[in-house]
């Protein structure tokens, strides 16, 4: 679980720099946090801590990039002719 958490965290970090993959990185980061937390609970280790921290950072960065309510509804986009 610790290794899986680390891998998911790294993949989520890579997704952060991709505009379209940010929301996928958000989900992967949260799953990485879950696995990292469960790994730390059962058997605390450096890899578990690393996976948890990596997933946490990735989740925060992906959250900033993915949660962009430039418009609350796409209808507003069309209404004001912005696209």
């Amino acid at each position: 679980m610790a290794v899986a958490s680390l891998v998911l965290g790294i993949i989520a970090l890579i997704c952060t720099i991709s505009g379209y993959g940010a929301w996928a990185g958000l989900i992967l980061g949260i799953v990485g946090i879950i696995l990292g937390t469960m790994a730390k609970k059962e058997q605390p280790s450096g890899i578990a801590t690393g996976g948890f921290v990596c997933s946490l950072i990735a989740t925060i960065l992906c959250g900033i990039v993915a949660v962009s309510c430039t418009l609350c509804t796409t209808c507003s986009c069309l209404t004001f002719g912005l696209f």
Partner: peptide, 30 residues
């Protein structure tokens, strides 16, 4: 659910592709 019509209009205008889907997923929360 709230903006179902607007989302359908967006797909009609820009096509059902990954870019449009990603824009819809990234924008708009209630």
């Amino acid at each position: 659910i709230i903006d179902f019509e607007g989302i359908c209009n967006m797909f009609e205008k820009y096509g059902f592709n990954f870019e449009t889907l990603s824009n819809i997923i990234q924008g708009g929360f209630v």
